[in-house]
């Protein structure tokens, strides 16, 4: 079934359509949240909340304003970032590691964090450190181009093309 008609059905509160969309995006959305909160159990909780929110606010999605995936991604990022900024989270994890995917892969002592390490490693193969960082900031953390440029200390005008080449490398790594 076409994505567009699935979305239309979903917006009419069709549960079967919602289930299909859930199957398409939930693992990714949980992963994005997991990358931000660095606690798989907590990520699952937030992930579930995000999909509840999506269901309850389905009519607010407008296809002309962006991809359906981008819409969910935005809601998920905001939910995860809200959590990271919450008091209870800060009390639990005083030193949130500022590292990126590499850090996740190398951080062996974080038992609460479960990732597909082999899959992640092969996807990030041959990606420059700056690429990993840029992808994470733009897609997983919802940074604007300006914010990403400032964080990584690179010219704003180069973000678009740098990102394009990083994503191209990532696409080559997809099995």
């Amino acid at each position: 079934m076409e994505l567009d008609s699935l979305i239309t059905l979903f917006q009419k509160k069709d549960l079967t359509a919602f289930e299909k969309l859930y199957e398409m995006y939930s693992k990714n959305i949980c992963g994005v949240i997991n990358t931000i909160v660095r606690d798989t159990e907590l990520a699952e909780e937030i992930c579930q909340d995000v999909f509840l929110k999506i269901w309850n606010q389905s009519e607010s999605y407008d296809v002309s304003k962006g991809r359906f995936f981008t819409w969910i991604l935005n809601i998920a990022r905001n939910a995860a970032i809200d959590e990271v900024r919450s008091k209870s989270y800060k009390q639990g994890k005083k030193n949130l590691p500022a590292d990126y995917f590499v850090g996740i892969l190398e951080n062996k002592d974080n038992l609460n964090l479960k990732v597909d390490a082999i899959g992640l490693r092969s996807l990030l193969k041959n990606l420059k450190e700056q690429c990993k960082q840029l992808i994470e900031l733009l897609y997983f953390k919802g940074y604007t181009q300006k914010e990403a440029a400032e964080t990584l200390d690179i010219p704003l005008g180069t973000i678009k093309t740098r990102n394009r080449s990083c994503i191209s490398q990532l696409r080559k790594n997809i099995p």
Partner: peptide
């Protein structure tokens, strides 16, 4: 991006 996100989570929603 979907693939990258999926690899960042080992559970099954």
């Amino acid at each position: 991006i979907l693939a990258l996100g999926e690899a960042s989570y080992s559970g099954t929603p």
